[in-house]
């Protein structure tokens, strides 16, 4: 049980990164980015490209992947989302699904469906009072916590963060007050892409690289963001921890293959009982 809680905590940290990314873009652009799963996958493959193909050590490959995916996300914003900004948000949803489809198949085009692995050394797990913590889990926890700390500092302490929060609150008012909306949106996408890429690298580190690794986390990520009150990055972290714990603890009772199924049930329950999320403000409109 204690082991399950520990594993759940680590997997919660992992889910938190894309959940924050999802909440950031939702808060500022007011649409749910359905390509977040494909973005995670793309991040993993970018790291794989830098690490296994170009031979860069993983500590270099991971930031490269984050920067690369950040740039791709900004590119997609300019090429797709910005052009349909004036359409209703359903159109944006459908467009993000199209983006996911293109990204996923571009990856298949380049790398096929083969299962790959990053070129990293395998280390012995740490043991402490009968609890085992894999080296990879430690890296995941540390990397995710540092990334969250950086996001928190950016959001609360910088001009960019203030601008992002202002736009999330009221985009028109923020623009009237002289906040450069387009540039803030670009930075939000860059941050969102970097977070998704980091999640992809961490997932790949703990397992394998294949075209569906991000999609397999899609339901968990959305469930986490909804629990946290979608659009609220800090809530998303709490939601991710809850989802991580519920998934791992439920694995004691139901088969691990149903991890996403458990997330689906949690998602439905939250939507029925508390649709604004556990930490969201009740300002949900239809």
């Amino acid at each position: 049980m204690a082991q399950a809680l520990l594993n759940g905590l680590v997997s919660g940290f992992l889910i938190a990164l894309p959940a924050i990314a999802l909440s950031l873009t939702y808060g500022i652009l007011n649409f749910a980015n359905f390509s977040i799963g494909a973005m995670i996958t793309a991040g993993a493959y970018l790291a794989y490209f830098a690490n296994a193909t170009l031979g860069a050590p993983i500590l270099v490959a991971a930031p490269l992947a984050a920067i690369g995916l950040g740039l791709i996300a900004v590119g997609v914003e300019h090429g797709v989302y910005r052009r349909i900004r004036n359409a209703d948000h359903i159109t944006l949803l459908v467009a993000s699904m199209g983006v996911a489809f293109v990204l996923e198949n571009a990856i298949r085009f380049a790398y096929g469906a083969d299962v790959r692995a990053l070129d990293v050394a395998v280390a012995r797990p740490l043991a402490w009072h009968g609890l085992r913590l894999n080296h990879e889990q430690l890296v995941i926890a540390l990397a995710a916590l540092s990334a969250m700390a950086i996001v928190a500092v950016v959001l609360t302490r910088t001009r960019l963060g203030r601008a992002m929060r202002a736009i999330a609150d009221d985009a028109d008012l923020a623009e009237v007050r002289g906040i450069a909306r387009a540039r803030t949106v670009d930075w939000t996408w860059a941050l969102s892409g970097a977070l998704a890429a980091l999640a992809g690298v961490l997932i790949a580190l703990d397992g394998i690289v294949e075209p569906l690794i991000g999609t397999n986390y899609l339901v968990s990520v959305f469930a986490a963001a909804v629990i946290g009150g979608i659009g609220n990055p800090f809530g998303a972290v709490a939601g991710a921890l809850i989802i991580g714990l519920v998934e791992e603890v439920s694995a004691l009772a139901v088969s691990t293959t149903y991890r996403q199924g458990v997330s689906f049930i949690v998602l439905i329950l939250v939507l029925l009982l508390r649709p604004q999320g556990l930490f969201g403000v009740a300002r949900i409109r239809r």
Partner: peptide, 11 residues
């Protein structure tokens, strides 16, 4: 809002 139906149906 419609987003939630999209999320739920996908899940």
């Amino acid at each position: 809002r419609e987003d939630y139906l999209a999320i739920t149906t996908l899940a």
